[in-house]
Design a protein around this nucleic acid. Sequence first.
DNA 1: CATTAGCACTCGGCAGGGCAGAGTGCTAAC
DNA 2: GTTAGCACTCTGCCCTGCCGAGTGCTAATG
Lengths: 343, 343
Amino acid sequence: MLTERQLLILQVIIDDFIETAQPVGSRSIAKKNNVRYSSATIRNEMADLEDMGYLEKTHSSSGRIPSERGYRYYVDHLVSPRETAGNIHIIRNIMQDGLFEFEQIVQSSAEILSRITNYTSIILGPEVFETKLKQLQIVSLSENTAVAILVTNTGHVEHRSFSVPEAIRASDLEKMVNILNDRLRGVPIFKLHEMLNTEIINLMTKYVTDFDTTYDYLKAVFFSENPVKLYFGGKSNLLMQPEFNDIDKVRSFYSMIEKEDEIANLLKGAADGIKVSIGHENEVDAIKECSLITATYEMNEEQMGTIALLGPTRMEYKKVIALLDTLSTEMSDVLYMWYKNNE
Amino acid sequence: MLTERQLLILQVIIDDFIETAQPVGSRSIAKKNNVRYSSATIRNEMADLEDMGYLEKTHSSSGRIPSERGYRYYVDHLVSPRETAGNIHIIRNIMQDGLFEFEQIVQSSAEILSRITNYTSIILGPEVFETKLKQLQIVSLSENTAVAILVTNTGHVEHRSFSVPEAIRASDLEKMVNILNDRLRGVPIFKLHEMLNTEIINLMTKYVTDFDTTYDYLKAVFFSENPVKLYFGGKSNLLMQPEFNDIDKVRSFYSMIEKEDEIANLLKGAADGIKVSIGHENEVDAIKECSLITATYEMNEEQMGTIALLGPTRMEYKKVIALLDTLSTEMSDVLYMWYKNNE
DNA sequence: CATTAGCACTCGGCAGGGCAGAGTGCTAAC
DNA sequence: GTTAGCACTCTGCCCTGCCGAGTGCTAATG
């Protein structure tokens, strides 16, 4: 257990290091006006904190820097989320602005998030899971091409162009779409597949000639798994951090960032609430010298997506945690409103 | 005017430097088996080439590197575009694969382009200019929200969610959309605005109550300028180039790359055919140490978009120029087929 | 007279040494 | 328990000397 004084010193060191990225020496701590001990005392305490694993030295006579364990302690015990008044306003503003362009909201949230924090922001989702089908449609473009459009109750639109095989009659397609619309409107997207395979098939065979081909085709067009979307903001922000002065780190890091699917998996597992992964707590190698802070947002108590910030382990945890907290509840609120509107 | 021998030497130097990124010395040139002169002779010629501005030294006793003027000469006189058999196949494959998912074609073209070349690829467009309206539609989501969908004959789908003001009646909206569909189907997108303002207005006022509000609203929803899309491939490829060993260059470069609108402007002006901009020929500061090669692609003889590759001035011009040449004609072909299909 | 061999010279890069500054750990004094 | 003081350690920087790669010039060559 840490004494009051050790706590204070740990806090000061971490705050200082987060700000300056330089090892912190005992003398500079002693100079702070909320510290009333001499540098010698502080040196002793620092040695103890190092023994306990909260601090590290970069070399034998350097100042101390926080260890990952130190950050962990800091985040768990010394950070009390309290948002700055300015930010909440900015966030509110984005949120209210274009309520009706969901993807744009997400994109600009990501951008603003990265601008406020100077880290890289990643937003996953929203998953189309809980949303319901509003309308299916096929618009024919020419004799043998058409575009299929799927609209959900959240205003999300998916579309896909395809070629219409000779074997399929336009009238059959139309019939099928009509039936599907009839039966599937209001059905949650994730149930579509199931419904199709059970209830709808029987119905269709009755009305549509050459059912099999047409059905297979439609299924492929409408219900192909489409990858969850990732939105990035400030991808180059991390470059500016002094820990990325080493060009090779930059290289390995950025070749990783380009692999969107890995990132998506990383964020997909996120638990409810805010979670902080510090350095080696992360499972992906390329970000083992970074911290990842994730927050989820939800709609009507159903988790929809994840907001994350990626920065160096020397991250402004206080600020960032508060910010993500605000943003995620704000997004959830907006989504809830939306949901109620469209019920 | 350059002598035969100078030409040879210039070519060898540039080829060598493009490969190794190291200054080229007279001895190493003399060793090549297509060079039959001693290192002393070559030194003399190199001095002359330097006087003429085609070569540079990094310091007084270093080997030579090509100047920008040298590259220019190289590109203009020494590059004869001839594509490698392998690449054209790869390209054909992408092109035929998913003819019906245009945006995906473009995206994966960008990715493959960057993978073959190890540079950063940028594709602009396709512009929706020459394409024609196929269908407008409004799907109502709830009492006061709806989503507007616009489909073009190329299978391109635009959509936008919006809130329906109290003042507007659903029936009016519907009527308007019907009229618009009637009158505007087949009209090129770029003429929509004009047509609306002249012919359609009169017609509408007759049938729709409270015309003004509704009209303004629809116009905003359907015909808002939407920015041209940029597709990137291999953004981090340039990091791997040795000229980016300097972290500050990397920083300024990447903060520039993030400004999509600037890049878009850069590519928008591209003339027909292939154009090579070397180093300071580029107007944007951040890429004054890079070369940008642009090629346009067209549909039915109308320019639609631009493909570009961004690399260090020490770029594999031969390979890249051939590649872009193939890709742009290939894309144009595909688009032409598409066009004929949908006429 | 164009080409080449030879040589003096230049410069970058690297390793080693010396020095200043920041910081520690320990001991002894308060 | 706290602090002052001192010896010690390590980094970063600059300076030096040296090696190797490459040039430019001159004089010899076919």
